[in-house]
Computed example of a mutant assay.
Amino acid sequence: MRHLKLIPSDTKIPFIKFRHIAVGVSILLIVASAVLTMMRGLNFGIDFEGGILLEVATDGPADIGGLRTRLGSLGLGEVQIQEFGEANDVLIRVQTPDEGGNDASQAVINKIKAALGEGVEYRRVEVVGPQVSGELIQSGVTAVILAIVLMLIYIWFRFEWQFSLGSVLALVHDVALTIGVFSFLQLDFSLQTIAAILTIIGYSMNDTVVVYDRIRENLRKYKRMDLGELVDLSINETLSRTVMTSGTTLLALFSLYIFGGEVLRDFTFAMIFGILVGTYSSIFIASPLLLYIGVKRDWSGTGDAKVQQAKG
């Protein structure tokens, strides 16, 4: 029985030849992401920023200017109104009252509904207080850091510390670039985005482990082969599996991005970007880093193991 292979099993693409360029570009992108995030910041969603969010649909095309005028006259503080999806879909975000708790928030919602009048469909109404949003930010950051640390420990026990360091650097690369693109595009950064980042971490690590497994097998099999050639061989041998996994996952994600609606769009975008970056980092970051760090060549436990570095 034949298996479908988008990539021939005997490819000989010289990935390691481009490792200096790939690592250099990645370092520049990570620095750019950090600078951009510090200067421009993230467009935190209501989960993290706190406030009242209403998703409404008007009978006809939304009059954004008119809505700003009507809601601005209510004295509710800063009011953000933006279109999304269809011409009649509108997101309204206002600050939560400093005092009064849920009763005050409900009073604000009632004022907005009265100002909007009839002919408006309310699809979503959310209220998040500032204390809750602060706790959510802390929990989200803790979850991402804990996931990366646990992955480091897992790879350390399964392989060696060199593999662990390489995989974690690749994960940091993926997370940094994902946050950077959200800052650049000012997409809504919410709990859904944190969930997407955690999923990206798991996906990228799984992809990296597949390549690392093949590298470890080949280290046992080809003890005299140049390390650069061995890593190239391992990447090419797993390339078909990598392309198939990433391709099928992206097909599902693109369908969700197109037909899933605005609520899932930022989450799906984060997943699509993360899958692409994670696949790239498994090939051009995690694997080539082994050449810079050096790995044990003798996995049998006998004899003196020498680290053979790739040429160039």
Rank of each mutant, 00 (worst) to 15 (best):
G85R: 00
A22M: 06
R2S: 05
R123E: 08
G77K: 10
K296H: 10
P288Y: 02
I275L: 05
A176M: 15
V127Y: 10
S73A: 13
P130Y: 00
Q138E: 08
I109G: 06
I81C: 06
W156S: 14
S139K: 15
A270W: 01
I21D: 01
G65C: 03
S105G: 15
V295N: 09
V210C: 14
L91T: 04
D103T: 00
G45W: 04
N110I: 03
K17T: 09
L276F: 05
F273S: 13
N236L: 03
V23K: 07
V295R: 09
Y122T: 11
I145W: 14
Q186E: 14
S300I: 05
L74E: 13
E99P: 08
R19T: 01
T242V: 04
I81E: 09
A34Y: 07
Q131A: 15
E49P: 02
V31H: 02
G77V: 12
T11C: 04
F157G: 01
L28N: 11
I179V: 11
I27Q: 09
I179R: 01
I155G: 15
A286G: 04
L67M: 09
L152G: 09
Q162P: 13
G51Q: 10
V56E: 12
T302A: 15
R93W: 03
D304H: 02
G85C: 00
M38W: 04
N88Q: 09
L253E: 09
